[in-house]
Simulated assay, not measured.
Amino acid sequence: MFFVAGLSLHARSLPLRVVTTMSYLKYVAEQVGGDHVSVVALANPRQDPHYVTPTPRMNQIAYNADLFIEHGLNLDLWAKNVLDASGNPKIQPGSSGHLVATINVPVKELPTEVSRSWGDIHPQGNPHCWLDPFNIRIIAENVERRLIAVDPSNADAFARNYRAFIDRLDAAMFGEDLLKSVGPKAGDILTRKTRNDELIPWLQARHLTGRLGGWLAKAERLQGMPVITYHKTYVYFSERFGLNVIAELEDKPGIPPPPQRRDAVVEAARSSGVRVILNDNFYSREAADYVASKSDARVLLTYIDVGASPEVDTYEHLITYLVENILQAGR
Rank of each mutant, 00 (worst) to 15 (best):
V306Q: 04
E198D: 09
K232A: 14
R12G: 04
V114W: 10
L179R: 03
Y315G: 05
V266L: 06
P127L: 14
A155N: 09
E220P: 01
V274N: 01
N142S: 04
T229M: 08
W130V: 09
P45N: 12
G330I: 07
Q204M: 14
T20W: 00
G214E: 04
Q60H: 13
M173P: 06
V245S: 12
E113H: 14
F134M: 14
F68K: 00
D280Q: 15
S271T: 13
I200Q: 10
M1N: 11
W118G: 08
G34K: 09
V105A: 02
H98P: 00
R206F: 12
A155T: 08
V274L: 05
L278W: 02
L179T: 03
G183S: 07
L179I: 14
P93N: 08
E198M: 12
K180G: 02
I103L: 14
P89A: 09
P201L: 10
T191A: 13
G183Y: 03
V28A: 03
V276Y: 03
P258G: 11
S96C: 05
S284N: 06
L14M: 13
P111D: 10
A29P: 00
D84G: 07
E267F: 12
P152M: 15
Y283W: 15
P257K: 08
V150K: 01
L300G: 00
I255C: 08
V39S: 02
L249Q: 01
K218L: 15
